[in-house]
Design a binder for these strands. Sequence first.
DNA 1: AAGAGGCCCTGATAGC
DNA 2: TGCTATCAGGGCCTCT
Length: 287
Amino acid sequence: MPELPEVEIIRQSLDKKIRKKKVKKVIIRNKNLRVKIPNDFKKFLEKKIINKVSRFSKYLIIYLSNNKFCLIHLGMSGTIHLIDPNNKKDFTNLSFYNSSFLPKKHNHIEIIFDKFKIIYNDPRRFGFFQMIKNSDDLKRRLMHLGPEPFEDKFNLKYFFKFIKNKERTIKDLLIDQKFVSGIGNIYASEILFLSKINPQKILKLLSEKECSQIIRNSKKVLLDAIDKGGSSIRDFKNINGNKGGFQDNFNVYHREGKSCKRMNCGGIIIKKVITNRSTFFCNFCQN
DNA sequence: AAGAGGCCCTGATAGC
DNA sequence: TGCTATCAGGGCCTCT
């Protein structure tokens, strides 16, 4: 499910809910995730107070009161559910569902607080929960990731270093987390549409102007998506109050065969597999 | 050494 | 209706 905007939406609501709260109990229902949940994970979290819920790229970082961290990645299908019998009003975004909508299968972890609990569900098991023992380890763990699009470091000079003499396509580079982190398959297509660049364009052929466009639109698309509460493609049917999904704003993603939304363009949206991922673009204004 | 491709896993949907 | 094939928002590993 989640690219940077979706993870940020989850972070915001999770932080609001569990900050300064004490973990009462942890139940491991199924330890098989991308990284197997270690035996001492229960002990790692129990009795600790959550200082805050932070995020880098698509990773959630839970700061614990003992200066350790819990690093969470949702993979493709990880979701976090709030079960709070006393407060139905909290079920207002992507990550939180009324308890009656909680899937019966694939619950992996339950984290129980005093008055509510959260459940991690992940059918495809590409997500993970990891214990990080100090900030140096955290830094090391995330070291391989490039800057987020919002950072000053993500500028023209940085961009040029990655495209010089390179034969890869721009689409492939945009979803490469070592280059820039947080952009996934949906937003890569959307960013290139706004930039009027064909996703198959070879890196070494990109002009300075085109690179600037991509830098600017990377920020724009992700910020707009956060503003709209993220995107949910395969819309989970029974989410309360999940309006304003960014999926309604998609210009190209999942719009194969439809007409281009750009004023007076007249082009048709094409779907093409680029390095094993579906990519969408206009056959007219993105050439 | 860059870049393509496969693999981890389950479920929803498309197509016959 | 019921089967099978394909595809899914991520990331990592291997092979050439």
